[in-house]
Computed example of a mutant assay.
Amino acid sequence: MPRYRRGHDVDAAHAHLLRVDRRLAGWMRKLGPLPAMPEWRKAFDPVDALARAILFQQLSGKAAATIVGRVEAAIGSKRLHFDTLGRVDDATLRGCGVSANKTLALRDLAAREQDGDIPDLRRMSLLDDGQIIAALTPVRGIGRWTVEMMLMARLGRPDVLPVDDLGIRKGAQRVDGLQDMPSPRQLLERGERWGPYRSHASRYLWRIADFDGTARAPTPRSQE
């Protein structure tokens, strides 16, 4: 049986945060409840998701989507894996607009997949957050933040706080009325009271960072 199921109880998370943090609670009431993320119920392929995360790095969404489309056409598949990426050489990937560093990262990911180093969903259901981070961050081009986005948006893990994320830090700055954004270490300490629902607090902090008093769509985040 899996130890960790995809998704978590957002109602319980909401009630907990209202109870433990008066300042955050004021913003939560202003913004309203946040629903469960639809990605928690969607089919999810970790290797493909990581490959796409690599391709999207440091690019606008439109530019990255164009490059992904070219790669899919070149490999003849919408599934980015060892077997499909192996159908083309590096020069072809470069011709699709994939940088040299990203090409190396895709090759490293594919090689680690072939060696069995990338856990699938079944294996991830038996691993805690730290174990998943430890398994995926050795991949070239995959840092802790990328894995944290996967943990939150795809796996629905309840207690993730991406302290290096600028949106999260800006949101915390607004909640506490600070002159400067808190450092990652300060944010980690500040967020202790939000556990075991720090993911839900993070989602609010993103929305607080975006809030300008008018109704508008929130900024798209990685893997949402």
Rank of each mutant, 00 (worst) to 15 (best):
E39L: 08
G76Q: 05
R23H: 08
D117R: 10
Q179Y: 05
D117V: 07
K170V: 01
D89E: 12
V160D: 09
I168K: 06
V88P: 01
R112C: 02
R5N: 05
R123S: 08
Q131N: 07
D128H: 12
R23V: 07
R122Q: 15
L104W: 12
R169D: 04
G156D: 08
R198H: 04
A111G: 10
W40Y: 08
D180I: 09
L155E: 14
G143S: 06
A49W: 10
R122V: 08
R29C: 00
L17C: 00
G156T: 10
A172R: 05
Q114T: 12
A49M: 14
Q131W: 04
A12I: 03
Q114N: 12
D89T: 13
A111Y: 08
L55Q: 08
R185L: 12
L59A: 09
D165H: 13
G171F: 15
G26N: 14
D129N: 11
H8L: 03
L109R: 03
I67Y: 14
N101L: 03
I75Q: 02
R19E: 02
I67F: 13
S202V: 04
W206C: 04
Y4M: 14
L188V: 15
G177N: 03
A63M: 07
A65N: 15
A51D: 15
P158H: 01
A36W: 10
L55P: 07
D212K: 05
A217P: 03
P46V: 06
E39G: 06
D120I: 02
G156Q: 04
M152K: 05
L31E: 12
N101H: 13
V139E: 12
L187K: 01
W27M: 06
L151H: 02
H81D: 15
T146R: 01
I75T: 02
H14A: 00
E192I: 05
D11I: 00
W40S: 04
P35R: 03
A13R: 00
L166S: 09
M1L: 06
L24S: 00
M37Q: 15
Q223E: 14
W40M: 00
D48F: 10
D21P: 00
C96A: 08
M150T: 08
R154K: 14
R3N: 12
A51I: 09
G141D: 13
Q186R: 06
E189Q: 12
G130R: 01
A105C: 02
S199E: 13
R169P: 01
